[in-house]
Simulated assay, not measured.
Amino acid sequence: MLVSEAIATRRSMRTFKPDPVSRADVEWIIANATRAASNGNLQPWKLYVTIGPARERLSGAILKAIDAGDNGPGGEYDVYPKEFTPLYDQRRKLVGKQLYTVLGVPRGDAAGMLKQFRRNFLFFDAPVGMILCVERRMGGGQWIDCGIFLDQLMLLAREKGLHTCPQAAFSRYQHVVRRELGIPDDQIVICGLALGYADPEAIPNNLVTERAPIQDFTTWFDQ
Rank of each mutant, 00 (worst) to 15 (best):
E159H: 13
V21F: 05
V128Y: 09
D216T: 10
V105G: 03
I190S: 02
G69E: 15
Q90K: 09
F123P: 05
A157V: 12
D186H: 13
A110R: 07
R178S: 10
N205T: 07
A194S: 15
M138P: 02
G129V: 13
V128G: 06
I183V: 10
I214D: 07
M154Y: 09
E210W: 11
A33V: 08
V176N: 03
P53M: 08
F149R: 05
D25C: 00
Y173R: 05
A61S: 14
E201P: 00
Q187R: 13
G141S: 11
T85L: 05
R11I: 06
W45F: 02
N120C: 10
I29T: 00
A157Q: 08
F123I: 08
Q98W: 01
T9E: 14
A168V: 15
K115W: 05
R11D: 06
A24D: 12
D186I: 02
A212M: 12
L42A: 10
E159S: 04
I203A: 15
T218G: 00
R118Y: 01
C191I: 00
A198V: 04
V177Q: 01
D199H: 06
G69T: 13
D151Y: 05
L122I: 02
V79P: 01
F117P: 01
W45D: 00
F217H: 14
Q215H: 07
E76I: 01
Y100F: 15
D67F: 07
F124R: 11
Q152T: 04
E56W: 01
R91W: 10
Y88S: 02
L155C: 12
I7K: 09
I7L: 13
D216F: 03
H175K: 04
A126C: 10
E159F: 10
G96L: 04
L162I: 11
T164G: 04
A111I: 12
K160L: 12
T218L: 15
G69Y: 13
R35A: 00
S22Y: 02
R91N: 06
W45C: 02
G104E: 12
Q174G: 15
K46V: 07
I29F: 03
A33Y: 02
V102C: 05
